[in-house]
């Protein structure tokens, strides 16, 4: 039933994130797999953060979209490993974030073996302002309106903006 899976995957890939509606779950890297088992469509998703409150909404949106496309039997499974990383956000997703005024993430931190070092100095991350393009921006808070967003301010155009922080 290759056609069932292909169609179901195409439908699942159109479902958007409830908190970042400019992104599909596929763009975000949350949609991990779409398969077919015993006549059922099995969709696998992974949470961004442990406390992501949108997981229930994502499950419901996926089931609704697939049922509307004629896939009656749908199961949504969660997978925790490997843990979600902002590196999984697609190029198209990054473009759409920037178009919506949210700076996309840079590369996620690479963790070596052993204790995670604590950096007390100012972070040297370069994040471009999504409005004017200046690299002269500063973090105002590592925590924003959703778990995945930090707050920044542009020193060139003085506008505040959000940034999907690297994990």
């Amino acid at each position: 039933m290759v056609t069932t899976v292909t169609d179901a995957r195409a439908v699942a890939e159109t479902v958007t994130d409830p908190e970042l509606p400019m992104l599909t779950l596929a763009d975000l890297g949350v949609l991990r797999d779409v398969t077919e088992e015993d006549g059922r469509v099995v969709v696998t998703i992974t949470p961004t953060y442990s406390g992501c409150p949108a997981m229930d909404a994502m499950r419901a949106d996926l089931i609704r979209a697939l049922r509307a496309a004629g896939h009656e039997q749908v199961e949504v499974r969660t997978v925790l490993h490997p843990p979600w990383s902002t590196d999984w956000i697609s190029a198209a997703g990054r473009r759409r974030l920037a178009e919506a005024g949210i700076a996309p993430p840079g590369a996620a931190p690479r963790r070596a073996e052993g204790p995670i070092p604590l950096a007390l100095g100012p972070t040297v991350l370069t994040v471009r302002c999504p409005r004017c393009g200046s690299a002269d921006t500063e973090e105002t808070s590592a925590f924003g309106a959703t778990a995945c967003r930090a707050l920044r301010r542009c020193r060139a155009c003085l506008e505040p903006f959000e940034h999907v922080k690297e994990i």
Binding site: G51, F143, G144
Partner: peptide, 14 residues
């Protein structure tokens, strides 16, 4: 306030 709520939410998820 937003930061503390976010930290609390992460821990609640765990």
């Amino acid at each position: 306030e937003v930061a503390l709520a976010n930290i609390g939410l992460d821990l609640l998820g765990q």
